[in-house]
Write a protein that binds this DNA or RNA. Structure first.
Lengths: 349, 349
DNA sequence: CTAATGGATGTAATCGTTTACATGGCGAGC
DNA sequence: GCTCGCCATGTAAACGATTACATCCATTAG
């Protein structure tokens, strides 16, 4: 079951067997055939640990995410793993659970298993550990927070673009009061999304009232609560953007409970385009963030460095685009009658 | 950065350092302290590959699932990983994508990375590969399909129990015609769920008409289509059980489109209790399959064998229970008026 | 015909640990 | 005071590959 037995059976040295396995240098076709037969006959496959030990290359890549049960991540993971597998890399997947202590142990495990590169798709970072990785020469790719300066490759998601498209779309439908339900502001990604939205409001010269921006938690219940708060405003928004789709689901629920209608009374726009968004009632207009591609790019970023095709600290960009479904429509209320309760009454509900 | 340097710094032999790290035999407290200091000073951690190579134990466990973006799996994975981590095992996660060719490569990867045990939570099995694992002495735990005979530990999910509770619940509410939307019958788990249902009907002496049983695909669109078919029946069911929650989501959609109401016109029961089921409209009554626990038990089954506390081929059991939410209620229609269309008309919709 | 060249193969060191066995020193029992 | 035994530690052989270097043989050029 080891290379020696194969060598013996094929009447060659272990070096020759190794050469066949790795294609590292030429061997006579006749010898090669004999070796290959022996390998098949013994059902031999090399011991990766021995390989790693001597060659210094583990063919392992690390992927650190927040939480696999967050619907944002599975597709990203699949994208990453698919290409990694195609290139004969094994993936070690770890969850930080949004906890920077656990993040530390994630990185430590990468280090121990000798990952050749690490993709960190979450923002609980720990300077010390990152530097430890850098010092050991392990290439890193980050989501949104890398930079050339620290030699960490960065994948920059262009949130602004999708948000622009959404606001554009809503404006074209006649909306002027647009609300926003953010994620938990402790999260970097949530903050970025919110500030992109604020930026956008400015550009479109739209009302920017603090009351129209409410903090959620990137989960359904938080979206629901936040939406209730928006509905209680004297002058409620006629359209609401949300920081992720789960938040939008919650908003949908709140509006339904308030006996109002989407999109007739209020338009809702989600973010991420998780699979379930096609199946809400009504199907959700949302900003698509191509997560499979994100995973692919993360692998690519690492792979290029490993092959020497690219420097550490390269920058990549991912676009986001609006997907229009049925949760948005023309602003139904006239400027003078922005009272949602009366709308409900008018409809006789 | 290796054990020699630590040994040198602490003025002991590598064997002593190893003893400290593994606690394998007593060392003088004074020496121990010196070694520990050296370890900390050099920021040393052992090379797992070297360890595995010589000790033959990798501290790696394999977990094979179908598809991480199927909402059934994330919690299972988390349950498994959490306990594995607590016991210092690393987890290699692989997806078969419901494809038995890929299943083969999953197992191969486990073999190559020298997993000490493998949990196979999907049913695309490949006799040959399983035997290969067995031959190399790798303990295996399977979902539903293991057995003592082949020395494969088995976790048996008691689908019948939850289904009984559901049927019981529906009967108590006055339902007599209960439909079922199954998963794709190519899947073992879908077949098992369906046959549990059929079994149950018999016990309750309920109508068993083939037309009341429709095949879905364990996804939303399949559930929707299947529900349409049920709605078109002359004598449609007043309650429908589904093989998983996504299917139930689809059914909800279909009923909504048909301008009927859940639960007033039709009661719906899901299966699995994925997180989103709390948030549908109405919140879904469903049969809870405790997936985190499933993951935990899978680890436990392997761990016991590894510690020698248990034989290969042990059996474990997981219970399922009904969770009543709002998608079920008393059968609204009188026996003589089981015409859903007229129900809709009566309500004036 | 000899020497140089180069391609195919073998030899052996190496990677970083663990662990069986050897050694050394010290206390206890006689 | 000697021996026995035990505890703490060291020595060195594995584990299973890769790979630099050496060797061998055949071919070709001079």
């Amino acid at each position: 079951m080891n290379i020696k037995q194969v060598a013996k059976k094929a009447r060659v040295s272990t070096a020759t067997v190794s050469r066949i396995i790795n294609g590292s240098s030429a061997v006579r076709p006749k010898t090669a055939q004999r070796v290959r037969q022996a390998i098949r006959a013994l059902n031999y496959y090399p011991n990766t640990h021995a390989r790693t030990l001597v060659s210094g290359r583990s063919r392992i890549l690390g992927l650190i995410i927040s939480d696999i049960s967050n619907p944002f991540f599975p597709e990203l993971v699949k994208g990453f793993e698919d290409v990694a597998l195609q290139n004969n890399y094994e993936v070690i997947l770890t969850n930080t659970n949004y906890d920077s202590t656990r993040m530390a142990s994630c990185v430590q495990r990468m280090l121990e298993r000798k990952a050749e590169g690490v993709a960190i798709m979450t923002s609980e970072m720990n300077r010390q550990l990152i530097e430890e990785l850098s010092r050991r020469g392990v290439p890193i790719v980050f989501l949104d927070v890398g930079s050339v300066r620290n030699r960490i490759s960065n994948i920059c998601v262009d949130y602004a673009q999708g948000i622009h498209e959404a606001v554009d779309h809503l404006c074209a439908l006649g909306h002027r009061r647009i609300g926003f339900i953010s994620g938990p502001l402790s999260l970097k990604s949530a903050r970025t999304r919110r500030s992109s939205f604020l930026e956008c409001l400015k550009q479109y010269d739209l009302a920017k009232e603090d009351t129209l921006i409410v903090e959620g938690n990137h989960k359904i219940d938080g979206g629901e609560l936040a939406m209730y708060r928006l509905l209680q405003l004297k002058r409620a928004p006629t359209a609401v953007l949300t920081s992720n789709d789960l938040t939008a689901f919650g908003a949908l629920r709140a509006i339904h409970h308030a006996r109002l209608r989407v999109p007739e009374d209020i338009s809702i726009v989600g973010f991420d385009d998780i699979e379930l968004s096609q199946f809400t009632q009504p199907p959700l207009t949302t900003i698509r963030l191509p997560r499979t591609e994100l995973g692919r790019i993360a692998f690519d970023a690492l792979f290029r460095i490993l092959r020497g095709d690219s420097q550490k600290g390269a920058a990549y960009r991912i676009e986001t685009h609006l997907v229009v479904r049925s949760s948005t429509s023309a602003a139904y209320l006239l400027p003078g009658s922005q009272d949602l309760e009366s709308a409900a009454v008018r409809r006789g509900s």
